[in-house]
Amino acid sequence: MSVNTHDAEGRARARALPRASRTPRRRTAGLLFLAPLLVVNVLVIAGPALSSVAYSFTDWDGINTPGFVGWDNYAALWGDEAFLNALRHNLVWTLFFLTVPMGMGLLGAYLLSRIRRGRTLFRVIFFVPYVMATVVSAAVWRQVLSPTAGLIPALDAFGVPWVGGLNPLGDPDLALGAIAMINNWQWWGFLVMLFLTAMQSVNPSLYEAARLDGAGRWREFWHVTLPGIRPTLVFLFLMTIIWSFLVFDYVYILTQGGPAGSTDMLSTLLYRTAFSEGRAGHASAVGVVMALISALTIAGYLVLRRRLRWDV
């Protein structure tokens, strides 16, 4: 595996470094350069993160002196229907974004990699939604999906069946799917770009060899393209899981977790619990659970990487 080669090369390079580079003076200079970043990291990331963990064991209301309550906030989460409801929605969201946008991104990138003329135009078209501000695209989609003034009544007027009375953002059964589709509209073009870049780095001789062996398009994709872009694929799977548990913007702008909690996510629940209900300690526990899910995802990935010796 190339990972071993890289590691071996890295170790060889490290051994080859001049002894002077490892002297205490050099180390001090290095630490001095690192110090501002470390300070910023401690102040901006580690400090608040640790204080969130500490607050999750308190009854803090966000303003007054907190009192220690032990594991009460965590114990309360497992019986909290609002928390379980939000967690379910995050899991559905994760499943959706691991499949639909990934599939669309792979397909789009593969098709783009097969063409020469118009490729740049398509890249721009696919990428434009990604650079739009979330607030803008959410406002546009809210209008488009309006049951009174948007695309739906227009289609209904044209006699399109099934759309009459449809209210994607106002129907508890449709709202989560509607927001996921809107988010996907912005997201999948970005995946196309990433996958396309990865596909272009696959050695063309592998495709030639596959064709000589009689492989069709599907086998070429399955046995050459996918293994060739595995680092990108694995990285995006990992990040999709993490991002799916942090999703907030579209949900907050479009429904704020409604109607009737049908689009509530852990992040919107956390925000409401902390800022509307004044239960910052409980909200911190929700935040810690979200962080733990991300940590477990990364840990799982690291284990897989070590066991399967993935080159990522």
Binding site: P172, A260, S262, R272, S276, E277, G278, R279
Partner: peptide, 19 residues
């Protein structure tokens, strides 16, 4: 108070939907 007030309108959604 804040928690009751938040529940007043968030839980009301569930009456509308019949939950």
């Amino acid at each position: 108070p804040p928690e009751t007030n938040t529940a007043l309108y968030t839980e009301f959604d569930k009456i509308i939907t019949g939950d």
